[in-house]
């Protein structure tokens, strides 16, 4: 998953994706899925390229894409925070943890913070129910989360970033 590509790269790569699908309306959703899979999100130039290929207006493609919550229109953040909503985590109040994340990051699940740092995602089960409720950041698992712990972790990441840019 590469989130920083130039426009020409994108258009170049995308032609390869197009080859797999006939140029007709019914290809809108499969193509959107491929684009999202490949680039991590659906960008304006990608939609423009699709529009040209399929002969369907960009607004129409965007209309279809924005209907489904699965499609994202901004590149994923540097840190993807996954919050488990599986049964075990749910029982152990993962929703409260999610609430804290929402407040802390000021984004809804499925969205990225305006500074591009964090993307908040809900996932089904991370596979370590014993540690519930679980949160994962770029794959790194944080166990037995509470609202306070969540805030702590986010603060750490933010500090890390600040130090980096400070240098």
């Amino acid at each position: 998953m590469n989130s920083s590509h130039s426009e020409s790269e994108l258009v170049f790569g995308i032609q390869e994706l197009f080859k797999k699908h006939p140029a007709r309306r019914s290809s809108i959703i499969p193509l959107l899925q491929e684009i999202q899979e490949h680039y991590g999100y659906v960008s304006p130039p990608a939609v423009d390229a699709m529009s040209e290929y399929l002969g369907v207006s960009a607004s129409e493609i965007y209309g279809v894409a924005s209907f489904y919550t699965q499609f994202k229109f901004v590149p994923p953040g540097k840190y993807v925070i996954q919050i488990c909503q599986g049964t075990a985590c749910h029982v152990r109040a993962s929703s409260i943890v999610l609430e804290a994340l929402r407040e802390e990051l000021k984004v809804e699940p499925g969205h990225t913070t305006s500074d591009g740092l964090f993307t908040l995602e809900r996932v089904a089960c991370v596979g370590c129910c014993a540690l519930a409720p679980v949160m994962a950041i770029n794959g790194k698992v944080y166990a037995q989360m509470t609202q306070d712990k969540v805030r702590e972790v986010i603060k750490e990441y933010r500090q890390k970033e600040e130090n980096k840019t400070g240098i």
Binding site: G55, V56, S57, S59, E60, Y62, G63, S66, F67, Y68, T69
Partner: peptide, 9 residues
């Protein structure tokens, strides 16, 4: 082509 369309859900 539709310049405008229904967007979001």
């Amino acid at each position: 082509k539709s310049v405008i369309d229904f967007v979001h859900r």
